[in-house]
Design a protein around this nucleic acid. Structure first.
Lengths: 121, 121
DNA sequence: TTCGTTGTTCGTCGAATATCGAACAAGCTA
DNA sequence: TAGCTTGTTCGATATTCGACGAACAACGAA
């Protein structure tokens, strides 16, 4: 598991962020992370193969939408809400509101019983 | 020149709109149209072949971001700001603000001397 | 050390995208 | 009618994207 690259706040690219947020599955991931809690990779459920899920998380990470932290063999993901709001004020909020109203990305959810406080037992 | 298809307000798809707004050139087009004025196709200047420009305008139109009106052999384009705001409140505003701050899509501009009031002489 | 768990990476596939020039169609205009 | 203007459409390429299974790497546990 190679060290993941995270763009600095100042390096965020608007087109790249928009592209990252143009896939229903990735929108679903952002919605799941929208409460600001850190989530374990294993908590995330989506109707795709795990290699595909890894791909989508990588796209989000490379665009600077999420941050991945590694702990042992596990990964924890958070939404970079503050960084995004700093560079693109209101964008993520508008997206989340619209996605909620349209129920975009509803195929993504958290593993039943998973709790943000139990992410690191 | 076939009759263009415009999705109804209720048919707008968030992922499709996001994808349409993830290209720098298309963001530039939206910026040029952001003042709400109707612009003639011929006023639009972008560093691509006209067939490519036609393609990008079609992507925007098909996603419901712009509306195209035909008058004789000419086309006039407007931003569907109201429809977009109705479905995705704040999204276009946040995009425009961010794009302005980052100067995204600056390769797109209006033909010198073109005026919104002179679009239909 | 030997497993088992956990994500990532690789190779591949089909579909979609961006781009260009050329050909085309529709409507003015001479 | 014959041309001119204006966009659109058509191939043709090259690139990228989303998806999958399989292989791999890193770490903890037995």
């Amino acid at each position: 598991m190679r060290r993941a690259h995270h763009p600095a706040t100042g390096e965020l690219s608007l087109p790249e962020v928009m592209a990252a947020l143009s896939d229903p599955l990735r929108i679903g991931l952002v919605r799941v992370l929208a409460d600001g809690a850190e989530r374990g990779w294993g908590e995330l459920r989506a109707p795709v193969a795990k290699s595909t899920l890894s791909h989508h998380l990588r796209v989000l990470r490379d665009a600077g939408v999420t941050r991945t932290r590694q702990e042992g063999t596990r990964c924890f993901v958070t939404l970079r809400r503050q960084d995004l709001d700093e560079r693109f004020p209101g964008l993520v909020g508008a997206l989340l509101e619209a996605a909620g109203a349209e129920n975009v990305g509803s195929g993504v959810y958290l593993a039943p019983g998973a709790d943000s406080t139990a992410a690191c037992p």
